[in-house]
């Protein structure tokens, strides 16, 4: 749910432009923390986890049309620096299949990496506190998804004035130009109110769906972590911290 499925041209240029700028800046800073040899060694793993995230996004759970992101589990396995690059790549590949626009790749990377990075941090934190794998994973996933969904809502909210402009701007005289505006000034005050109401409606639709998504993904990630812990406990790197 934290993924912005926005098409190109809907968000204002300054918003998606700054999304790219901030994503590049964070990526640059995070890459300072990884040794070049380490990065080279882990590149195939990064590719594989990114591919798993892409495939996860393509498998829809039918009744609620929800797809898992697998970002938190990838964050736990890859660590905060690599998950950032993984989310960037996932968003590029998904954009190439029409799953979100190309111009919103930067913003999508930021919201999705919030999920991965905070998922990793929360998992380590709750593992230290609780010392129990399943509750630690579930709480970490739930909180990380919650954070990224609110950041996505924030991003969409920042574009509200632009949507109103798109809604009511009388741009050119095309074949299908609809004449909806009679009195421009009078209409503007009304539109402002309308735009506000519509954004509330957006939140009202997104939040209940998201809650279902957080719970579902929380359960799936928890069960996946349990499965991985049974078969390859070394991947979770818990030995040093546990017992």
């Amino acid at each position: 749910m934290s993924h912005i499925h926005l098409p190109d041209g809907v968000l204002p240029i300054w918003l998606w432009g700054s999304g790219f700028a901030v994503a590049i800046l964070i990526g640059f800073v995070l890459f300072r923390f990884i040794k070049k040899e380490e990065l080279t060694r882990r590149l195939p793993l990064l590719g594989m986890m990114s591919a798993a995230m892409v495939l996860g996004a393509s498998v829809e759970i039918v009744p609620i049309a929800y797809h898992v992101n697998l970002t938190v589990i990838s964050g736990i396995l890859l660590g905060p620096s690599l998950i950032f690059m993984a989310t960037f790549i996932v968003n590029v590949v998904l954009a190439l299949f029409g799953h979100g626009g190309i111009t919103v790749i930067g913003l999508n990377t930021l919201t999705l990496s919030i999920e991965g990075i905070f998922g990793y941090l929360f998992f380590r934190l709750f593992w230290k506190i609780l010392r129990r794998l399943m509750p630690a994973t579930f709480i970490a996933t739930f909180l990380a998804l919650c954070l990224s969904t609110f950041s996505m809502i924030g991003v969409v909210g920042l574009g509200v004035p632009h949507y109103e402009e798109l809604l009511h701007k009388n741009g050119g005289h095309g074949v299908f130009e609809f004449k909806l505006i009679k009195e421009k000034d009078d209409h503007h005050g009304e539109n402002k109110e309308k735009g506000e109401i519509n954004f509330k409606r957006f939140i009202a639709i997104v939040l209940p769906l998201s809650l279902m998504g957080w719970l579902l993904e929380g359960v799936i990630t928890t069960l996946m972590t349990r499965y991985i812990h049974r078969l390859r406990p070394d991947l979770l790197k818990l030995e040093k911290e546990a017992r």
């Binding site: 495939l55 697998l70 799936i220 069960l223 996946m224 078969l231």
Partner: peptide, 10 residues
């Protein structure tokens, strides 16, 4: 389903 995704990751 979760085990299948776990299997995919491993």
């Amino acid at each position: 389903i979760s085990n299948a995704f776990g299997h995919l990751v491993i």
